[in-house]
């Protein structure tokens, strides 16, 4: 029993007592008051809107100018395109006639004499679809034209 009689030290508060528990809120430092923030938001938005408006005007003007320039040269390009298109149609028709001359009963521009468009007058020019237009060309040319956007 002697061994158990060690002087025990009681766990007590430090001299002067515990520090107070910091339960109070520590708010972040406020740089602006609410009113200032609202005013700042409105101010910045107004300034940005003004700049946006100016830029929008400028872009619209530039677009109109470019459109004007393109419309001015459009008739010339269209005339050139029409002539090339008609020449190519004739070439295509000749190619088809040459290609199908050994097939009995085949008529150019029809399916064995059956017309594609029955109600149109016979001398109506129907623009062929893209694949027909390029049917007799090399695949490379077809590809070049079809994916012009991707290549330029």
């Amino acid at each position: 029993m002697e061994a158990c009689q060690v002087a025990r030290k009681q766990d007590l508060p430090p001299p002067g007592g515990y520090k107070p528990i910091p339960y109070k809120r520590v708010p972040a430092k406020t740089f602006f008051s609410g009113y200032t923030m609202f005013a700042g938001y409105l101010g910045i938005t107004a300034a940005a809107a003004y700049l946006y408006y100016k830029n929008y005007k400028q872009i619209t003007k530039d677009q109109i100018e470019m459109r004007s320039a393109k419309m001015a040269i459009f008739p010339m390009l269209m005339a050139e395109r029409d002539r090339a298109f008609l020449k190519q149609l004739r070439r295509n028709r000749e190619a088809e006639r040459e290609l199908m001359k050994d097939v009995p009963g085949w008529e150019v521009g029809t399916y064995y004499g059956e017309k594609v468009y029955n109600l149109l007058p016979p001398d109506t020019l129907v623009e062929p679809i893209y694949h027909e237009y390029y049917a007799h060309s090399r695949p490379y040319e077809w590809y070049q034209r079809a994916y012009l956007k991707l290549r330029s």
Binding site: G109, P122, D123, P128
Partner: peptide, 16 residues
């Protein structure tokens, strides 16, 4: 092609 022999196409000389 839909363009048959009935459709009148101008000659190349007219288009050049």
């Amino acid at each position: 092609m839909v363009v048959s022999m009935d459709v009148h196409l101008p000659e190349d000389s007219e288009l050049t």
